[in-house]
């Protein structure tokens, strides 16, 4: 499948580092990077009390719905969203067309600061994602599926 997303150790470290810097520089509570289909890729900050899996799926659904609305209005994708809560605010932006960056922040930060820092982080993230896509498309990385046999797959389902 050509549109498969692959993550390698090297790029994950780079993406995590981008999250860390963004979280610190924007005084955010947490930063999450999610693929558009709802898979969590990386995060930083206070995530112990967060259900990252659910949050990722719902955010991706939300972005997909908003994208659908944009299409109906003949708009290009809305680049971002902002939700203001009593304690926590959420800033959502699309990066490099296939990844979603979520910043959770409170009164220790501000929307202006988050926007500013997100812009910088998004540029860096776009670059890493481009490298990642090239790397996985080049097909010269060892694939886990080269080792997996049909028997391995069968065995997974024999209980």
């Amino acid at each position: 499948m050509s549109n498969q997303l692959v993550m390698y150790e090297e790029e994950l470290q780079q993406i995590s580092a981008i999250c860390d810097v963004l979280q610190r520089d924007s005084n955010a509570k947490a930063v999450l990077v999610i693929d558009k289909n709802g898979q969590a890729m990386a995060h930083s900050g206070e995530v112990e009390h967060l259900d990252v899996t659910s949050l990722s799926s719902l955010t991706a659904g939300n972005v997909a719905a908003t994208g659908g609305i944009a299409q109906l209005l003949s708009e290009k994708e809305f680049a971002g969203q902002f939700h203001e809560g009593e304690k926590t605010n959420v800033h959502i932006s699309i990066v490099g067309a296939r990844v979603i960056m979520v910043v959770l922040f409170d009164e220790r930060s501000s929307l202006g600061l988050v926007r500013l820092r997100v812009r910088k982080a998004a540029a860096e993230l776009t670059h890493v994602l481009e490298v990642l896509v090239k790397k996985s498309e080049a097909g010269n990385q060892p694939s886990v599926f080269a080792e997996i046999t049909d028997d391995d797959i069968d065995n997974l389902f024999n209980d």
Partner: peptide
């Protein structure tokens, strides 16, 4: 779209 994560050693499918 599957997501193969070699870092966390996970195969994710939808």
């Amino acid at each position: 779209m599957s997501f193969i994560n070699y870092s966390s050693r996970e195969i994710n499918c939808k």
